[in-house]
Design a protein around this nucleic acid. Structure first.
Lengths: 374, 374
DNA sequence: CTGAAAGCGCTTACAG
DNA sequence: CTGAAAGCGCTTACAG
């Protein structure tokens, strides 16, 4: 009930206020709230009491001016209405928070220039890092960020930029397993339902699927819709199932496409999956396990990706572009090698794991081989 | 190729650097990047050129120390893997960004204490506002935020806290329309499938639905699952459809529940919707329109909510808790009234709009009355 | 362990 | 229109 005196001008208390009330220097206050700093128990308690009374909270905005760790991390995300992106966003925000990071999410709309604008914002807020899970920022913006001392992490979107960190899924193995699924189910002819969007991960999945199908000597048709959404799957079904002959198996490049394909196949073409034909998806979105779909698919390693991100953030390894490094200079060959190795390690860890469900005809052996993981 | 001299210590350029290069004072630099400030064209151009060369970007972290507008806004969100939350998050981040705000998303997990921790973070980062779309932060934390000069906005989660801004949907009307749907479809007995979670918006929907059903003299059963997810809908179907007699209509408190209910009803109980029974959902998540569900539901006014939020952020109306206001003092009655009016206005604007689809038996008249909105 | 001082980058009166 | 100066809140050597 009793109101405390003093500047209640609805301005938050500062370290100076606390110092005054506790009768110590502002350095002492600062030390009390700094992890490894040396303060006597007595001082610390006085400070803590004063802080409590004034409802003091260290201003991380100000702290960020000198400490890199309390600077924000930017997350460039798009398609926030799509399940895959949500799952990744969920995993990333959890992990980054647990790591003590403040994460600012930048919604990168379909507008192709917005990724650049987002990176610009990241620059303005002195982000410790920019994590790109959607969009393709222009190369010069990425370079600006790196020059400003920022780490840039690209998730599932390989390009040839120097000095950026990449986190990628090993699509080669997943696509090989995908083809194997179809083979086990007795499929001879396949259709790959993809998109002409041409994002890096789409292209990678396509390439490896095609290669694996060829290796297995299967006949493969490729169909590409505009996007990778439910509607694209519907259109694929309408187009492909009207043809005089149907294939044995259909690999949908995303689960969303698979859901649309299955719905139209089932409700409009009276197709019985997996008896008439086999369907496979990718992403393991929640809907894939819904009864109407029960889709065999591949789960992205969402949590592993998120852990990778914090690993990268926490290694204060000198930026690769710091050419005039004053550590023991290594030869170009060695540097190259080290980077190579690191990339390979990283890649080898992130595997998409198969989720066996009922849209591919099963055989006992495969069921065993690909037991549900969790 | 040629490297510029100077401190390329991978430290970003500061206003001082720019001033030096341009041969002007740092005030001039500051003014050049401040909207209404007065700088001569000549100075501005020199500054701009120097800034360009040094790749200078105003440090918003530092700016936030004195300017409220460039301070971040915090968004407390949970269930980032659920469609409703994604749609709202999408709308909010878009709108806030368009308004020039930096938005930091805090993932409030199921842990009940995490909402408080999140608000604590908001305090540390001197957020201009905290927007709560999930979780129930403890009252004292909310008060701390407000005392620190922060605006607190609660979305769809009414409570009795003073001085916080509320954005709410008018569930009364939506629930009345829901009951009307069932009546039009010829239903006499209804079941309300809800959850025992007891969040404010759930309770409000329940209350108004019950009231409307009573007004219409319908027989109503209430069933509550643990949550409001797909699995809860499945369990509801298993439980309710095993009973000796079934009701005519089932109102699912969320679309996710409705999807689970429909899937189990269709695939396990061989129910034909809407001929055997009618189903209604709430939220209009993307899956509601998928062919397997084609669910009649109510769309949350996502964009209107987001616009409301920025409206609140941009009105610099003195905080309501500033009791010793030095404006012309108004009577308590007047203040009260004003707040009331504002709340009513706000509420009247945000309506859930019905989306007519095929899970309720239709009659021509209702089809006309509730034409698809967009 | 502790305090005075300089520094991080900005903005905003205040004189000119 | 312009610059010197004080202020926003913090941290981090530097002496003691």
């Amino acid at each position: 009930m009793r109101k405390p005196k003093g500047p209640s001008k609805s301005r938050a208390a500062s370290a100076a206020d606390v110092a005054r009330l506790a009768g110590v220097s502002r350095s002492a206050v600062s030390r009390t709230f700094t992890d490894g700093a040396s303060v006597s128990t007595k001082t610390r308690e006085k400070v803590l009491a004063a802080a409590e009374e004034l409802n003091y909270h260290v201003n991380h905005l100000a702290r960020g001016l000198s400490q890199e760790k309390s600077r924000p991390v930017c997350l460039l995300a798009a398609n926030l209405d799509k399940p895959y992106h949500n799952l990744l966003l969920d995993a990333l925000t959890r992990q980054l928070q647990a790591d003590g990071r403040m994460v600012m999410v930048i919604n990168v709309s379909a507008d192709p220039t917005s990724a650049g604008e987002a990176l610009n914002r990241a620059l303005h807020y002195r982000a410790a890092a920019s994590i790109v899970m959607s969009g393709t920022p222009p190369e010069e913006m990425v370079q600006s960020c790196i020059k400003a001392g920022q780490k840039v992490i690209l998730i599932n979107r390989h390009n040839d930029l120097q000095d950026v960190h990449h986190i990628q899924i090993d699509y080669a193995q997943a696509m090989q397993e995908a083809v194997e699924f179809f083979v086990q189910a007795g499929c001879q002819t396949l259709t790959l339902i993809s998109s002409s969007k041409g994002t890096p991960s789409l292209l990678a999945r396509e390439r490896f699927f095609i290669r694996s199908a060829q290796e297995r000597g299967l006949q493969l048709t490729i169909w590409r819709g505009e996007n990778t959404n439910y509607e694209d799957g519907q259109l694929a079904a309408t187009t492909l199932l009207s043809k005089p002959t149907r294939d044995d198996g259909y690999f949908c490049i995303t689960d969303l496409v698979a859901c649309g394909f299955i719905d139209t196949a089932t409700h409009e073409y009276d197709v019985d999956i997996p008896n008439d034909l086999c369907v496979l998806g990718f992403d393991d979105i929640p809907q894939a396990s819904w009864k109407s779909y029960n889709l065999t698919t591949f789960a992205q390693p969402y949590n592993a990706i998120a852990e990778r991100v914090t690993d990268i953030l926490n290694c204060d390894q000198v930026n690769l572009n710091d050419q005039e490094s004053n550590e023991e200079p290594s030869t170009d060959a060695e540097r190259q090698n080290h980077t190579q190795t690191e990339k390979r390690d990283l890649r080898s860890k992130l595997q998409a794991t198969p989720k066996w469900r009922d849209t591919v005809r099963s055989t006992e052996s495969t069921l065993e081989q690909y037991a549900e993981v969790d």
